[in-house]
């Protein structure tokens, strides 16, 4: 705490960065991102490179700004009253924070899975088909069915639901619902998938399934996951970023963050001294 206060008075805090042992291509480069809720600055000059085809975990105590930062990537902060995002989020040469960029297009490229499973109160099929349908991706009915099937297969849900595609998605178990939401995100073929504490409402078995799924998905997608579970971050991610009171304190390869944290606050948090 006092360290942050000192930095706030003396100048800006510089994030400790540890490079990957194997260099990965960067998918999104966030530069000097500030978020304000009204007059309150919730996120201070966050800069981070998100590697492609890897899982990046955002960790930190509640209220540290990690979910706020996550929502910058698909501009969900736009839907929050009084929320202002400044800075550049460069995805392959395009600034995601540029307000001339169409958010509809952006959200087709950057999908999102939420904390609480939130399937539409419609059939399983309709849940998956909705995205492709509004974007006009499916050429015909057969194609749409194919998209639904491949999405469910990728989400590891196909075997469980293939006989009841017309039943309501809300009738599935919590873990199945969350995988349905992942399948729904996959169905529009995004490049990046954002996950905001996707397992916090699930039991350990369902969590294991979703984690396994995340491991498979990273072959094809860039994934950013916000999590409160240290062990989950260790299990699923390749890079970890530690946030504290709106600052990005430290970021680096997951192994090095957990085994050899550079900052005292990071160390205290991951060893459970606070948070």
């Amino acid at each position: 705490m006092s360290a942050v206060a000192a930095e706030a008075s003396t100048g800006r805090y510089e994030t400790i960065r540890i490079a990957d042992p194997v260099a990965r291509p960067t998918k999104i480069a966030a530069k000097e991102v500030y978020v304000h809720y009204g007059a309150k600055e919730a996120l201070h000059h966050v800069s981070i490179d998100i590697p492609a085809q890897a899982v990046t975990a955002f960790i930190g105590p509640s209220g540290c700004g990690k979910s706020t930062f996550l929502r910058c990537f698909n501009r969900m902060n736009d839907t929050i009253e009084n929320c202002r995002v400044d800075g550049v989020l460069d995805m392959e040469g395009e600034d995601l924070n540029d307000h001339s960029l169409d958010v509809v297009l952006l959200r087709a490229r950057v999908g999102m899975v939420f904390q609480k499973p939130n399937p539409f109160p419609k059939s399983i099929f309709e849940n998956i088909a909705y995205g492709p349908r509004i974007h006009g991706v499916a050429q015909d009915k057969a194609h749409l069915q194919e998209i639904v099937e491949t999405s469910l297969k990728k989400a590891g849900l196909w075997e469980e639901v293939k006989d009841r595609l017309n039943e309501p998605g809300t009738g599935l178990s919590g873990g199945q619902q969350q995988r349905l939401c992942i399948a729904r995100a996959i169905a529009v073929s995004p490049e990046v998938i954002l996950m905001d504490e996707p397992c916090s409402a699930l039991d350990p078995i369902a969590t294991a399934k979703v984690e396994e799924l995340i491991g498979e998905l990273r072959q094809n997608y860039t994934i950013i996951i916000v999590t409160h579970s240290m062990s989950q971050a260790q299990r699923v991610s390749q890079r970890t970023a530690y946030f504290h009171l709106g600052y990005l304190v430290e970021e680096g390869p997951t192994e090095s963050i957990f085994n050899n944290p550079q900052e005292k606050r990071t160390k205290d948090y991951i060893t459970g001294v606070f948070g």
Partner: peptide, 19 residues
């Protein structure tokens, strides 16, 4: 959460509303 789900897959605000 329903609204967010719809916006999250890229529905426009009007689509999220009417669908």
């Amino acid at each position: 959460s329903i609204r967010q789900a719809a916006l999250g897959v890229g529905a426009s605000p009007m689509q999220a509303m009417f669908h």
